[in-house]
Design a protein around this nucleic acid. Structure first.
Lengths: 347, 347
DNA sequence: GTGAAAGCGCTAACAT
DNA sequence: ATGTTAGCGCTTTCAC
């Protein structure tokens, strides 16, 4: 038996192709026709063909989620949430890597092949050409991350600045005075935003000594390497390190351990993203939750809304951050104001 | 400007539709035609339409990867590898959840809609109906996991039995005599295989006392709950715990910590899958590497090969395991034969 | 409410 | 090497 087509069903039901299609798709049709057609379809084991339908309707029932590295837990968590939202609406999810800037551009251009109805993109770097391509694109897209103010593209943003401020507040309140920010690549969108946040949050605190360092990548290994170097430098000792993300934060934890620094007693560490890794490592990594799951959900909802009405004005949604305290920082409760670190340093 | 179609390109290039298609797809065509067509396509910004091509060629350029929970790092690692192998061949990857048994069956039936050219499936439970559906399916599929011996479906298997044996060997060699196996749900394929392996590996060791326990799920939380109960039981003390996977193993680590048991001194813990989590937790989790990355690669290769030649006989590939030692077990070197645990117990 | 017919954009015979 | 033509399987006017 070959493939069962709609024509086969029509023949068996004894009605026209058009009526068969309508009956199956819940369009106008008499009860009798609907019944005949459904029975015929069931008997034949008819299954509609995606490609044919897509060609006609110009809709694929697919959405794409594109990120630089799906290995990063923060993207995995985002993807899970996106998948569950869009699956509920009957969409499949295609995963893509963005790779470098050129690859991202190619990806966006490729959308015009029409293999997906929409895209959720979380780029690490945003070139003007990308913004333009997104604005030109006929395929609805929402960007998870930051775009230029005037970009006519839906975006959902974390509040990195506010998030870093939470970390700084917490550290200062628990006694840290010399705080290092261990960034990833600085020319990335998250790298820039978080560095900006760090400067803003420390600018009005003359009592705080700051430093900025860079890991070559947003990974544990890169974080470890950079932190090791940072800790071995003669120039300064740090009470606390704010890492650009949890992976770099965990690398920092390892480096501290190997350098003989106790966490949080000798040095406190704060990560960002509050991924499941932060709970697993030892000590637990205090981390700024930038709402990755909420961002995923919001992005999916924005995308579905825009596909529903492409005329909608571009929206920018911000998801608020919060600080998840764990063992890698001194608890604010046990050391309210007259704090451990200050005391230790005094001795 | 509306959508640019092949017909537009043909008109502009001044050649027929067929020649245009051939020129663009690298079929027979004179150099002059190729040149004209390519220029016209470039000038018009022509981008071929996926749906139309798929309808004609019966190929989508898409493959699906379906697992129960993409949140489990072992599946993420597998997916990354699969994505990178198939992307190199020009395929996109669609992710799906298998959900329960019915959902998995629906998924396989859905393949006949023709939205993907192939499927890599890693089911937690394998019902006869699923095997049948896979054998019937016109869409090439490879299963990562175990199927009945006579199933005519490509499979790539971990050697769970061998893997558990490695863990048992290591533990016994380092002094453990009372070894518990903390399984997940027993009626799952991995649950069953690993339990079988545990029994086989301990059967010929009369000196070893064994026990089997169950976490309600393959997660950290479920592992933690089950291990807590296990450690608090009056009936027995365990020298070592083999966890069904890293997540359950990490839950066990937490439970041990909370129960005041030092790892590995009081109790050694071994996980399975050797995910990146095993490196992050503290102490590092000794883990049986079941070759998830290699399995992903193999699965992708098998699938591509089968799509190339559907007549191929079903193949079953096994990926060998190895043990990655970390801090959660006593090192075999420091305690060669006359071991720590035995000594401790003697005192 | 139903049927006939057109056609989505492309590829692949087939004929030249 | 090139052009003509016939669909792939489906949805959707349009007329009845």
């Amino acid at each position: 038996m070959g493939k069962v087509t709609l024509a086969d069903v029509a023949r068996r039901a004894g009605v026209s192709l058009a009526s068969t299609s309508r009956a199956l798709n819940g369009q106008v049709a008499s009860a009798a026709t609907v019944e005949k057609v459904h029975r015929a379809a069931a008997e034949l084991g008819y299954i509609p063909d995606s490609s044919a339908r897509s060609l006609r309707t110009r809709r694929t029932g697919q959405l794409a989620f594109a990120v630089a590295d799906i290995g990063n837990p923060v993207y995995v968590e985002m993807m899970r949430e996106i998948e569950s939202v869009v699956a509920a609406e009957g969409y499949r999810l295609v995963v893509s890597r963005t790779g470098d800037a050129d690859a991202t551009l190619d990806l966006v251009r490729d959308l015009n092949r029409g293999y997906v109805d929409g895209l959720i993109l979380s780029p690490l770097r945003v070139a003007p050409a990308l913004v333009e391509a997104l604005e030109q694109s006929a395929v609805p897209t929402v960007v998870v991350g930051r775009l230029p103010e005037d970009a006519r593209v839906d975006t959902v943003m974390a509040d990195s600045e506010g998030g870093v401020a939470l970390a700084v507040d917490h550290l200062v309140r628990t006694g840290a005075r010399r705080i290092a920010f261990l960034n990833g690549p600085a020319e990335t969108t998250p790298g820039r935003a978080r560095a900006t946040g760090f400067r803003a949050a420390t600018a009005d605190r003359p009592e705080v000594v700051t430093g900025e360092f860079h890991a070559e990548d947003f990974t544990i290994d890169a974080g470890y390497a950079a932190a090791t170097q940072m800790f071995s430098a003669e120039t300064a000792e740090w009470d606390a390190v704010i890492a650009v993300n949890d992976l770099v934060g965990i690398g920092t934890l390892h480096a501290a351990h190997e350098s003989g620094l106790a966490v949080p007693e000798d040095v406190a560490v704060v990560g960002m993203d509050n991924t499941s890794l932060a709970d697993v490592c030892h000590p637990g990594l205090t981390s700024v939750d930038l709402g990755s799951v909420a961002r995923g959900r919001k992005a999916a909802q924005l995308l579905l809304a825009r596909m529903d009405d492409p005329a909608l004005a571009a929206r920018a949604v911000r998801v608020p951050p919060f600080l998840q305290e764990r063992g890698s920082t001194v608890s604010a409760q046990t050391s309210p104001h007259t704090n451990d670190l200050a005391e230790r340093r005094a001795r």
